[in-house]
Structure formats: structure tokens, C-alpha cells
């Protein structure tokens, strides 16, 4: 019984590590692009917003 559990948890750990590693790479690259878009959009808003519009 212990052996089955150990195998199961081993697969859960291994699979999670691999998926997490892949997601980390994808999200790191995609997130960097998203940040550039976010800041560009925020900078546009900053330029276009009328003065005194801040809360």
C-alpha cells in the first residue's frame, strides 16, 4: 500500500514540476510582453489624461 502511495505522490510531484517549469518559461516570456503593453497603454493614458483628473 505504501509503495502505491509513494508511486502516486512521485508522479504527482514529477508531473507538477515539469508542468510548472514549462508554465514558468511561457509566463515569464508572455508576462514580459504583457508588461510592455500595459506600460505603453498607461503611458498613453498619462499623456492623454486632462490635468486634475487624478483622484
Amino acid at each position: 500500500m505504501i509503495e502505491s502511495w509513494a508511486t502516486f505522490w512521485g508522479w504527482v510531484l514529477g508531473a507538477s514540476l515539469v508542468i510548472f517549469a514549462v508554465i514558468s518559461v511561457v509566463v515569464t516570456i508572455g508576462g514580459f510582453r504583457d508588461i510592455r503593453t500595459l506600460l505603453a497603454k498607461a503611458a498613453d493614458n498619462e499623456e492623454n489624461s486632462p490635468e486634475g483628473n487624478e483622484e
Binding site: 511561457v26 509566463v27 508572455g30 508576462g31 504583457d34 508588461i35 500595459l38 498607461a42 498619462e46 487624478e54
Partner: peptide
């Protein structure tokens, strides 16, 4: 902080988080 203009920017980043950045910040 220079990009924060109002309460919406302040609390929920202007509701503009795309998926990748959303996942990164959530985690």
C-alpha cells in the same frame, strides 16, 4: 507609482491584466 491615476488603477490595475501577467501576479 507614476502610472497610478485613480482608485481603479490603484486597486485592480485599471482592469487591464492580460492572461500571462495575470497568471504571474496571481502566483
Amino acid at each position: 507609482r507614476r502610472y497610478v491615476k485613480n482608485m481603479s488603477d490603484f486597486v485592480v490595475a485599471g482592469r487591464s491584466l492580460k492572461s500571462h501577467l495575470g497568471i504571474a501576479t496571481m502566483i
